[in-house]
Design a binder for these strands. Structure first.
Lengths: 183, 183
DNA sequence: AACTATACGGAGACAACCTCCGGTTCTACA
DNA sequence: TGTAGAACCGGAGGTTGTCTCCGTATAGTT
């Protein structure tokens, strides 16, 4: 890769990251190119379409979530560790409006890589939590991530209500039925 | 309203309904106009923007959900009645890809009317279910609808997996934690 | 310094949304 | 029934955003 190409690539990635945070992932790609000081053609050469750019941005962020998962393996309560990690995922997705929708869909293409890395990162936490008996054995990582992403999305659509995610998450974690069923 | 205007209005509404079901609510409005046999200008005069058209379509569908809610008031188990109704809402939203996103957002504009009608329709069911003690008292109708819509949305994004909604719904209803916390 | 593979960048094709207004059609009233 | 004009029709075209194509510029090599 030529030096100028590398420079532009990095610059685009960083500008995209910021633009996604500020304006959401629907931001005009031309604006990103402009801010990065390159032409729109250059952007499209490096990132063939919007999702390619998104996934390139997000994949970088996943390191911190992987790290977080490993740290949380030391947490005493396995269920709480799992929940804490899923919430961290939510916070991350929430930072980029539109990311959770992509994660949720991610049927093919590069975005799938993000999803897969998340699965791997959280897998150990889920296994441990199940073994502890605190988590329903029929809960899969895929569904937990879908559920989390779905709630993030719901929260995104209600920006005026800051607590939306927490309330919905609380409902899902504890169930809507009163827990009293025997307690 | 002039007779021809009324005809076009009705025709547009019906074509929109079908197009939404077949192609999702992202379908090109020009196509709807074309199928209805009118110009794009006519469509936009009757429905100033896409959400106006969507809400006009959806509002009609709500009657059946209102009816359903009243029928379910006769159901023995209040919690099951509530869940059955929410699931009916989900089925309805699921029929129109993109509807649930609108319902969820519905901060202003005509779409709010749909949301409000849903609240009213389900309110009695929720109250009854809470009084029976089977439903967490801190669960509000707004959050339940948001949760339901969010799961519908998640399911929409995974069209290859038909059971997505049911699995997620099951997790949310029963909670992710094992119900055994004392049972 | 010359050469070539690589990268740049913007003009422009395309698609969708929405507006505007000249032309047409319906309806009310004489 | 004929007419006036209010209401409505419809598509041309402005606007915005996505993505492609290819002539031009440049980094890296010999």
């Amino acid at each position: 890769m030529r030096a100028d190409a590398q420079r532009n690539y990095d610059r685009l990635l960083e500008e995209a990251r910021q633009a996604f945070i500020v304006h959401g992932t629907d931001v005009a790609l031309e604006d990103i190119a402009k801010h990065a000081g390159v032409g729109i053609g250059t952007l499209y050469r490096h990132f063939p379409d919007r999702t390619a750019l998104m996934s390139a941005v997000f994949v970088r962020e996943l390191d911190s979530l992987t790290d977080r998962a490993q740290l949380l393996m030391a947490e005493e309560d396995p269920a709480q560790a799992l929940f804490a990690w899923l919430k961290a995922v939510a916070v991350h997705s929430g930072a980029y409006r539109g990311m959770s929708a992509q994660i949720m869909a991610a049927g093919d293409g590069e975005m799938l890589q993000c999803k897969t890395r998340l699965h791997q990162a959280g897998g150990a936490l889920l296994t441990r939590a199940k073994e502890s008996g605190a988590i329903r054995p029929d809960a899969g990582m895929g569904d937990l991530l879908k559920l989390t992403s779905a709630l993030v999305l719901a929260a995104e659509k209600n920006p005026e209500d800051r607590d939306t995610f927490d309330r919905l998450w609380n409902l899902a974690i504890n169930g809507i039925l009163t827990p009293a069923r025997g307690a």
